[in-house]
Design a protein around this nucleic acid. Structure first.
Lengths: 122, 122
DNA sequence: CAGCATCCCAAAAGATACTG
DNA sequence: CAGTATCTTTTGGGATGCTG
């Protein structure tokens, strides 16, 4: 279905699923269990409602998260990673290892957004 | 320098370095050794000169490939992965494993480009 | 609370033509 | 051969306002 082509084609398709400015952080925020929409907003500084909604929908369509709506007032919606998404853990672990190991060489500090709100880096 | 923030921030920065429609395929084409510009063009169907040049320059700036120009006529330029890029192998291996394992669930066949040139799928 | 709708901008990617 | 230079298109991302 995919492996009949070069493996790299399959891989590239997979890579696209976890690509996007916020997907990694969303998954990171969900790795320990369910989270509500508002919790995610607060857990991910800088993201807008629009983007959070969009990326969650995207991930939902690709089977990476489940969305559960509770018929209550006020409304409550919970998101949770699927087993498939949890299976990505080794990928992220390897990536993290690589990124930290070569952070200096890669000048990772300069790669990402200059969204420095003036506050200290923690 | 990067690990002082949440690990996910560092990882996201690293992820951006290998993100792009062609980077994975370029690295794949270079994994067994040096290649000339024209060889890469032929090895990566669909890529344009413009994009190949741009991505190679980008990767060069990030220390993922080296570019060697030979003063000959006709000109010859060879590209090669750096050790840092080779170190990405485990990441790609895990990603590939994940993608192939869940190809059906993720419907990876529908994710990527519909660049079906009319020929049969293999 | 958890969104959707709308408009807008910037970055990524692609087409095409030209060159040392 | 291995690129540059332009231009156009596509995509991703963001700001703001409204709503069940």
């Amino acid at each position: 279905m995919c492996a009949d082509a070069h493996p790299v084609i399959c891989m590239r398709a997979g890579l696209r699923l976890i690509t996007g400015k916020w997907k990694a952080e969303i998954m990171w925020s969900l790795k320990d269990g369910k989270r509500r929409f508002g919790e995610l907003m607060r857990a991910i500084p800088g993201i807008t409602q629009h983007m959070l909604t969009a990326q969650l929908r995207d991930m939902e369509n690709h089977g990476l998260v489940t969305r559960t709506v509770y018929a209550e007032v006020p409304p409550r919606v919970e998101y949770e990673l699927t087993p498939v998404a949890h299976d990505l853990k080794p990928v992220f672990e390897e990536l993290n290892r690589w990124a930290e190991q070569h952070a200096v060489t890669l000048r990772l500090g300069e790669v990402d957004d200059p969204e420095d709100d003036g506050g200290p880096r923690k």
